[in-house]
């Protein structure tokens, strides 16, 4: 047990995590490709044409996984941030910082695809649907986190301040989601729902799950690449970074 604890803390130091991340990244890219190819094949060729919405519905294979990921990633980011505050490990803050842009991208992607889907379905690019509105506010929360970290020069302070914001955000996300839903029902919002496409075929569900897995793998690969860059930037003054082959070259 104690052995395992030690090795955990070993990998919690940026110096040991840097090469480990480097070895993991190709695997996650490979998995992204595998899941992505199969997922796209299922969603374009296997899943049946929807009898109500035609071919246009196929955008949900991007939209729904992106929306899931934007929410998951916020929780993952807040978890790392909270760990960083509680255990005072440097890597946790770097992980949170590395995840934020991908989370913001996912939130943006879900808004954009939502708009593309909304035009043929509702006849408008933007509808104040509860899900879309929540996604918009989640996007703002990501932007706030990134802006706060960017505005603070001292990296350790930026990590800690960002961590508090992420934790406050994670408490608020369910409240915001609930309040927006409440607001939506009060104002008699649209009854068509993106994720609850009527009589969703099993193959559609499979397509979505495969695409969600591809998005997961992509997010991990990108976050690890980004965290490697952050480690290099923050530890640039240390000996081990100067000794790295890629830095010498």
């Amino acid at each position: 047990m104690s052995n395992r604890l030690i090795s955990w803390f070993k990998y919690a130091s940026p110096q040991s995590f840097y090469p480990l991340a480097g070895r993991m990244i190709p695997w996650f890219w490979a998995l992204t490709a595998v899941f992505g190819v199969i997922g796209l094949w299922v969603s374009f060729f296997v899943a049946p044409t929807d009898f109500q919405q035609g071919e246009g519905y196929r955008i949900i294979f991007i939209h729904v996984p992106a929306a899931w990921m934007s929410m998951f990633l916020y929780v993952v980011m807040a978890t790392w941030a909270g760990l960083g505050l509680a255990l005072n490990t440097r890597l946790s803050g770097m992980m949170a910082q590395a995840i934020a842009p991908t989370g913001a991208l996912m939130a943006f992607l879900s808004l954009w695809t939502g708009a593309l889907w909304g035009k043929p379905m509702w006849g408008a690019w933007w509808v104040w649907d509860a899900r879309l509105t929540s996604a918009l506010i989640l996007f703002f929360l990501y932007i706030g986190f990134i802006a706060l970290q960017a505005a603070i020069d001292d990296a350790r302070r930026a990590d800690k301040a960002g961590a508090i914001l992420a934790l406050v955000g994670v408490v608020n996300v369910p409240i915001i989601y609930f309040s927006v839903k409440w607001w939506n029902t009060l104002h008699q919002g649209s009854t068509i729902n993106l994720a609850k496409a009527p009589s969703m075929a099993t193959t559609m569900l499979w397509g979505m799950l495969l695409m969600a897995l591809a998005f997961w793998m992509y997010s991990i690969a990108v976050a690890l690449t980004r965290v490697r860059a952050i480690i290099l930037e923050r530890e640039a003054h240390t000996e081990w970074v100067k000794d790295l082959n890629e830095v010498k070259a």
Partner: peptide, 20 residues
């Protein structure tokens, strides 16, 4: 300026229930 970016999204529930 930053404070408005951080705080306004968190004000959404208060706005919804208050105006509602």
């Amino acid at each position: 300026v930053l404070v408005s970016l951080l705080v306004l999204p968190l004000y959404v529930p208060a706005l919804i229930f208050g105006a509602g």
